[in-house]
């Protein structure tokens, strides 16, 4: 369960979805990164969705952890998609010069699952 302070990692089909919390401590961000990598090993997913739609403050530390997490997922043979950056966060990140390099991004989780090759229409409704 995602709270304002703690994130969560859930599995949908063979994709992991990591929900970053809105008001994380540095420790919570580090723990979520570790949880994602542990689940990578257990679940062997085709990809990981890093959902930052709840995130209202992306500072240099947080940006670095997200970028590193995506790189670690790639090193372990998965594909990471960063999802849902808010407009004000995108403006601030661009002004600060933070980029996500070659990491894929998507508007929302459905879009990310489509990028990862999963059709979300009928199955999602039935399983929903």
């Amino acid at each position: 369960m995602t709270t304002a302070e703690d994130g969560s990692v859930t599995q949908v089909f063979d994709v992991l979805i990591a929900n970053f919390p809105s008001r994380p401590t540095d420790q919570a961000v580090d723990q979520l990164q570790q949880a994602v990598l542990n689940e990578m090993e257990d679940v062997n997913p085709r990809g990981v969705v890093l959902d930052i739609s709840a995130v209202t403050t992306l500072d240099s530390f947080f940006a670095r952890v997200i970028s590193e997490t995506a790189n670690m997922v790639a090193l372990m043979g998965g594909r990471a998609v960063v999802v849902g950056m808010r407009p004000a966060v995108a403006i601030t990140a661009a002004e600060l010069g933070f980029g996500l390099g070659d990491i894929e991004t998507a508007r929302n989780t459905d879009h990310a699952l489509t990028l990862l090759g999963i059709s979300t229409t009928s199955e999602a409704e039935r399983d929903g």
Binding site: T57, R86, T92
Partner: peptide
């Protein structure tokens, strides 16, 4: 504005850290 709130809080996060 929401953007200026975000800029300010992001700056605070950097400096407090």
């Amino acid at each position: 504005s929401i953007t200026d709130v975000t800029r300010t809080v992001t700056a605070v996060s950097e400096l407090a850290r």
